[in-house]
Protein backbone atom coordinates (compact mmCIF):
# COMPACT_ATOMS: atom_id res chain seq x y z
CA UNK A 1 0.00 0.00 0.00
CA UNK A 2 2.77 2.39 0.96
CA UNK A 3 4.58 1.48 -2.23
CA UNK A 4 1.45 2.12 -4.16
CA UNK A 5 0.91 5.58 -2.66
CA UNK A 6 4.53 6.48 -3.10
CA UNK A 7 4.44 5.44 -6.73
CA UNK A 8 1.23 7.38 -7.15
CA UNK A 9 3.12 10.48 -6.03
CA UNK A 10 5.84 9.83 -8.59
CA UNK A 11 3.16 9.15 -11.15
CA UNK A 12 1.49 12.50 -10.56
CA UNK A 13 4.87 14.22 -10.88
CA UNK A 14 5.63 12.44 -14.14
CA UNK A 15 2.06 13.01 -15.29
CA UNK A 16 2.45 16.76 -14.73
CA UNK A 17 5.52 16.78 -16.94
CA UNK A 18 3.87 14.67 -19.64
CA UNK A 19 0.81 16.91 -19.56
CA UNK A 20 2.86 20.01 -20.34
CA UNK A 21 4.51 18.27 -23.27
CA UNK A 22 1.28 16.75 -24.53
CA UNK A 23 -0.64 20.04 -24.53
CA UNK A 24 1.98 21.42 -26.89
CA UNK A 25 1.93 18.39 -29.18
CA UNK A 26 -1.85 18.56 -29.23
CA UNK A 27 -1.94 22.27 -30.04
CA UNK A 28 0.56 21.87 -32.84
CA UNK A 29 -1.35 18.95 -34.23
CA UNK A 30 -4.60 20.86 -34.06
CA UNK A 31 -3.24 23.83 -35.96
CA UNK A 32 -0.64 22.33 -38.29
CA UNK A 33 -1.96 18.76 -38.59
CA UNK A 34 1.27 16.91 -37.97
CA UNK A 35 2.81 15.02 -35.08
CA UNK A 36 5.79 17.08 -34.02
CA UNK A 37 8.60 14.61 -33.55
CA UNK A 38 11.06 17.23 -32.34
CA UNK A 39 8.92 18.08 -29.34
CA UNK A 40 10.95 16.00 -26.93
CA UNK A 41 14.09 17.73 -28.08
CA UNK A 42 12.43 21.12 -27.72
CA UNK A 43 11.97 20.10 -24.09
CA UNK A 44 15.65 19.26 -23.88
CA UNK A 45 16.44 22.61 -25.44
CA UNK A 46 14.31 24.35 -22.82
CA UNK A 47 15.99 22.49 -20.00
CA UNK A 48 19.48 23.27 -21.20
CA UNK A 49 18.61 26.92 -21.86
CA UNK A 50 17.55 27.09 -18.24
CA UNK A 51 20.78 25.37 -17.23
CA UNK A 52 22.75 28.03 -19.08
CA UNK A 53 20.90 30.74 -17.17
CA UNK A 54 21.29 28.89 -13.87
CA UNK A 55 25.02 28.66 -14.47
CA UNK A 56 25.08 32.47 -14.41
CA UNK A 57 24.04 32.18 -10.79
CA UNK A 58 20.30 32.62 -11.02
CA UNK A 59 17.79 30.30 -9.32
CA UNK A 60 15.90 27.80 -11.45
CA UNK A 61 12.57 29.52 -11.04
CA UNK A 62 14.00 32.76 -12.41
CA UNK A 63 15.75 30.87 -15.17
CA UNK A 64 12.49 29.21 -16.23
CA UNK A 65 10.78 32.23 -17.81
CA UNK A 66 14.04 33.29 -19.46
CA UNK A 67 14.50 29.80 -20.87
CA UNK A 68 10.88 29.86 -22.04
CA UNK A 69 11.56 33.02 -23.99
CA UNK A 70 14.72 31.59 -25.54
CA UNK A 71 13.03 28.33 -26.49
CA UNK A 72 9.92 30.00 -27.85
CA UNK A 73 12.06 32.21 -30.07
CA UNK A 74 14.02 29.22 -31.35
CA UNK A 75 10.81 27.27 -31.98
CA UNK A 76 9.40 30.19 -33.98
CA UNK A 77 12.64 30.51 -35.93
CA UNK A 78 12.63 26.78 -36.77
CA UNK A 79 9.05 27.10 -37.92
CA UNK A 80 9.63 30.19 -40.00
CA UNK A 81 12.82 29.01 -41.68
CA UNK A 82 11.92 25.37 -42.31
CA UNK A 83 8.47 24.12 -41.38
CA UNK A 84 6.72 27.10 -42.91
CA UNK A 85 8.15 26.45 -46.34
CA UNK A 86 7.34 22.75 -46.13
CA UNK A 87 3.76 23.44 -45.00
CA UNK A 88 3.04 24.83 -48.41
CA UNK A 89 3.78 21.51 -50.08
CA UNK A 90 2.40 18.65 -48.02
CA UNK A 91 1.97 18.43 -44.25
CA UNK A 92 3.28 14.88 -44.17
CA UNK A 93 6.71 16.16 -45.20
CA UNK A 94 6.72 17.99 -41.87
CA UNK A 95 6.89 14.63 -40.11
CA UNK A 96 10.23 13.72 -41.61
CA UNK A 97 11.51 17.23 -41.26
CA UNK A 98 10.65 17.31 -37.57
CA UNK A 99 12.24 13.90 -37.09
CA UNK A 100 15.45 15.27 -38.60
CA UNK A 101 15.06 18.36 -36.46
CA UNK A 102 14.87 16.15 -33.38
CA UNK A 103 18.22 14.56 -34.10
CA UNK A 104 19.77 17.84 -35.15
CA UNK A 105 18.70 19.64 -31.98
CA UNK A 106 19.89 16.80 -29.82
CA UNK A 107 23.31 16.78 -31.47
CA UNK A 108 23.61 20.52 -31.21
CA UNK A 109 22.78 20.44 -27.51
CA UNK A 110 25.30 17.66 -27.00
CA UNK A 111 27.95 19.67 -28.80
CA UNK A 112 27.35 22.74 -26.68
CA UNK A 113 26.73 21.18 -23.27
CA UNK A 114 28.57 17.88 -23.57
CA UNK A 115 27.26 14.32 -23.48
CA UNK A 116 27.19 13.88 -19.70
CA UNK A 117 24.48 14.06 -17.06
CA UNK A 118 24.09 17.45 -15.40
CA UNK A 119 21.98 18.88 -12.60
CA UNK A 120 20.44 22.28 -11.86
CA UNK A 121 21.45 22.23 -8.21
CA UNK A 122 23.84 19.98 -6.36
CA UNK A 123 23.12 18.62 -2.94
CA UNK A 124 20.21 16.74 -1.49
CA UNK A 125 16.86 18.25 -0.64
CA UNK A 126 15.26 17.47 2.71
CA UNK A 127 12.11 15.61 1.77
CA UNK A 128 8.74 16.00 3.46
CA UNK A 129 7.34 12.87 5.00
CA UNK A 130 3.77 11.86 5.54
CA UNK A 131 4.02 8.59 7.31
CA UNK A 132 6.19 6.54 5.03
CA UNK A 133 5.49 8.56 1.94
CA UNK A 134 8.32 10.78 0.83
CA UNK A 135 7.80 13.94 -1.19
CA UNK A 136 10.64 16.18 -2.28
CA UNK A 137 10.09 19.95 -2.36
CA UNK A 138 10.87 19.81 -6.07
CA UNK A 139 7.96 17.45 -6.57
CA UNK A 140 5.58 19.98 -5.08
CA UNK A 141 7.12 22.65 -7.25
CA UNK A 142 6.66 20.55 -10.38
CA UNK A 143 3.05 19.67 -9.71
CA UNK A 144 2.22 23.20 -8.56
CA UNK A 145 3.99 24.71 -11.55
CA UNK A 146 2.13 22.41 -13.93
CA UNK A 147 -1.21 23.34 -12.37
CA UNK A 148 -0.46 27.05 -12.71
CA UNK A 149 0.62 26.64 -16.32
CA UNK A 150 -2.42 24.56 -17.22
CA UNK A 151 -4.64 27.27 -15.73
CA UNK A 152 -2.79 29.93 -17.71
CA UNK A 153 -3.26 27.92 -20.90
CA UNK A 154 -6.92 27.49 -20.09
CA UNK A 155 -7.38 31.23 -19.56
CA UNK A 156 -5.52 31.92 -22.77
CA UNK A 157 -7.57 29.50 -24.86
CA UNK A 158 -10.93 30.46 -23.46
CA UNK A 159 -10.63 34.16 -22.80
CA UNK A 160 -8.24 35.78 -25.25
CA UNK A 161 -8.91 36.56 -28.86
CA UNK A 162 -5.74 34.77 -30.01
CA UNK A 163 -6.52 31.74 -27.88
CA UNK A 164 -9.98 31.48 -29.36
CA UNK A 165 -8.57 31.94 -32.84
CA UNK A 166 -6.29 28.98 -32.14
CA UNK A 167 -9.21 26.81 -31.19
CA UNK A 168 -11.12 28.02 -34.21
CA UNK A 169 -8.30 27.17 -36.57
CA UNK A 170 -7.86 23.82 -34.93
CA UNK A 171 -11.61 23.16 -35.40
CA UNK A 172 -11.78 24.20 -39.03
CA UNK A 173 -8.93 25.92 -40.89
CA UNK A 174 -10.95 26.81 -43.95
CA UNK A 175 -13.67 28.47 -41.95
CA UNK A 176 -11.06 30.31 -39.89
CA UNK A 177 -9.64 31.69 -43.13
CA UNK A 178 -13.17 32.65 -44.18
CA UNK A 179 -13.40 34.71 -40.98
CA UNK A 180 -10.18 36.50 -41.83
CA UNK A 181 -8.25 34.90 -38.96
CA UNK A 182 -4.58 35.40 -39.87
CA UNK A 183 -3.25 31.85 -40.08
CA UNK A 184 0.43 32.68 -39.86
CA UNK A 185 0.01 34.73 -36.69
CA UNK A 186 -1.94 31.93 -35.08
CA UNK A 187 0.76 29.47 -36.07
CA UNK A 188 3.39 31.68 -34.52
CA UNK A 189 1.50 31.91 -31.25
CA UNK A 190 1.05 28.17 -31.27
CA UNK A 191 4.80 27.70 -31.37
CA UNK A 192 5.31 30.28 -28.64
CA UNK A 193 2.82 28.57 -26.38
CA UNK A 194 4.03 25.05 -27.15
CA UNK A 195 7.65 26.16 -26.76
CA UNK A 196 7.00 27.67 -23.33
CA UNK A 197 5.16 24.59 -22.12
CA UNK A 198 7.87 22.29 -23.47
CA UNK A 199 10.47 24.38 -21.64
CA UNK A 200 8.62 23.95 -18.38
CA UNK A 201 8.30 20.22 -19.03
CA UNK A 202 12.03 19.96 -19.77
CA UNK A 203 13.05 21.99 -16.74
CA UNK A 204 10.77 19.98 -14.47
CA UNK A 205 12.15 16.78 -15.92
CA UNK A 206 15.66 18.02 -15.21
CA UNK A 207 14.67 18.96 -11.64
CA UNK A 208 13.09 15.58 -11.05
CA UNK A 209 16.15 13.71 -12.26
CA UNK A 210 19.05 14.98 -14.32
CA UNK A 211 19.67 16.81 -17.56
CA UNK A 212 20.94 14.85 -20.50
CA UNK A 213 20.88 15.52 -24.26
CA UNK A 214 18.65 12.48 -24.81
CA UNK A 215 16.23 13.27 -21.97
CA UNK A 216 13.58 14.72 -24.27
CA UNK A 217 13.83 12.05 -26.91
CA UNK A 218 13.40 9.39 -24.25
CA UNK A 219 10.18 10.93 -23.04
CA UNK A 220 8.73 11.62 -26.48
CA UNK A 221 6.92 8.30 -26.68
CA UNK A 222 5.07 8.77 -23.36
CA UNK A 223 4.21 12.33 -24.43
CA UNK A 224 2.72 11.07 -27.66
CA UNK A 225 0.88 8.37 -25.74
CA UNK A 226 -0.58 11.03 -23.45
CA UNK A 227 -1.56 13.12 -26.44
CA UNK A 228 -3.32 10.27 -28.20
CA UNK A 229 -5.01 9.14 -25.01
CA UNK A 230 -6.42 12.61 -24.52
CA UNK A 231 -7.42 12.80 -28.18
CA UNK A 232 -4.85 14.25 -30.52
CA UNK A 233 -5.63 17.90 -31.25
CA UNK A 234 -7.53 18.35 -27.97
CA UNK A 235 -5.36 20.24 -25.50
CA UNK A 236 -7.71 19.66 -22.56
CA UNK A 237 -7.64 15.93 -23.13
CA UNK A 238 -3.87 16.07 -22.79
CA UNK A 239 -4.24 16.71 -19.06
CA UNK A 240 -6.11 13.49 -18.47
CA UNK A 241 -3.89 11.65 -20.92
CA UNK A 242 -0.72 12.87 -19.20
CA UNK A 243 -1.92 11.86 -15.76
CA UNK A 244 -3.09 8.41 -16.80
CA UNK A 245 0.13 7.65 -18.63
CA UNK A 246 2.37 9.09 -15.90
CA UNK A 247 0.66 7.16 -13.13
CA UNK A 248 0.48 3.95 -15.15
CA UNK A 249 4.18 4.18 -15.95
CA UNK A 250 5.18 4.56 -12.31
CA UNK A 251 2.78 1.92 -11.01
CA UNK A 252 4.05 -0.55 -13.57
CA UNK A 253 7.38 -0.64 -11.75
CA UNK A 254 5.66 -2.72 -9.05
CA UNK A 255 5.50 -5.62 -11.50
CA UNK A 256 8.07 -4.84 -14.19
CA UNK A 257 11.61 -3.57 -14.45
CA UNK A 258 11.58 0.25 -14.61
CA UNK A 259 13.34 0.24 -18.01
CA UNK A 260 10.03 -0.80 -19.54
CA UNK A 261 8.15 2.28 -18.42
CA UNK A 262 8.03 3.65 -21.99
CA UNK A 263 6.69 0.27 -23.12
CA UNK A 264 3.80 0.63 -20.69
CA UNK A 265 2.98 4.04 -22.14
CA UNK A 266 3.14 2.52 -25.58
CA UNK A 267 0.92 -0.40 -24.70
CA UNK A 268 -1.76 1.92 -23.35
CA UNK A 269 -1.50 4.00 -26.50
CA UNK A 270 -1.91 0.98 -28.76
CA UNK A 271 -4.90 -0.20 -26.77
CA UNK A 272 -6.35 3.25 -27.25
CA UNK A 273 -5.71 3.23 -30.98
CA UNK A 274 -7.58 -0.05 -31.28
CA UNK A 275 -10.41 0.81 -28.99
CA UNK A 276 -10.92 4.51 -29.52
CA UNK A 277 -8.55 6.42 -31.78
CA UNK A 278 -10.31 9.73 -31.17
CA UNK A 279 -9.26 9.75 -27.51
CA UNK A 280 -10.96 9.19 -24.17
CA UNK A 281 -13.48 11.92 -24.53
CA UNK A 282 -16.57 11.77 -26.65
CA UNK A 283 -18.03 14.55 -28.68
CA UNK A 284 -17.20 16.72 -31.60
CA UNK A 285 -13.77 17.85 -32.71
Amino acid sequence: MIDFLQLLVYGVVLGSILTLGAIGVSLIFGILRFAHFAHGDIMTLGAFSALAVVSLGLPVLVALPIAMAITAVIAVVIDQTIYRRLRRTAPVILLISSFGMALGLRSLIQLIFGPNNQVFAKGIQMPYRWGDIVVKPDHLLIVGGAIVLVLVVHMFLSHTKMGKAMRAMSDNVDLAAACGIPAERVVMWTWILAGCLATAAGVFLGMDAQLHPVMGWNILLPVFAATILGGIGKPYGAIAGGMVIGIAMELSTMVMPPVYKPAVAFAIMVAMLIWRPQGIFKGQA
Binding site: R167, A168, D171, N172, D174, L175, Q284
Partner: peptide
Protein backbone atom coordinates in the same frame (compact mmCIF):
# COMPACT_ATOMS: atom_id res chain seq x y z
CA UNK B 1 -21.22 30.22 -45.61
CA UNK B 2 -20.07 26.84 -46.94
CA UNK B 3 -22.60 24.06 -47.24
CA UNK B 4 -20.84 21.76 -44.82
CA UNK B 5 -18.39 22.26 -41.99
CA UNK B 6 -19.66 25.80 -41.59
CA UNK B 7 -19.35 26.22 -37.82
CA UNK B 8 -16.56 25.78 -35.27
CA UNK B 9 -17.94 22.67 -33.59
CA UNK B 10 -16.03 22.76 -30.30
CA UNK B 11 -16.81 26.42 -29.72
Amino acid sequence: VPQERNVFPSM
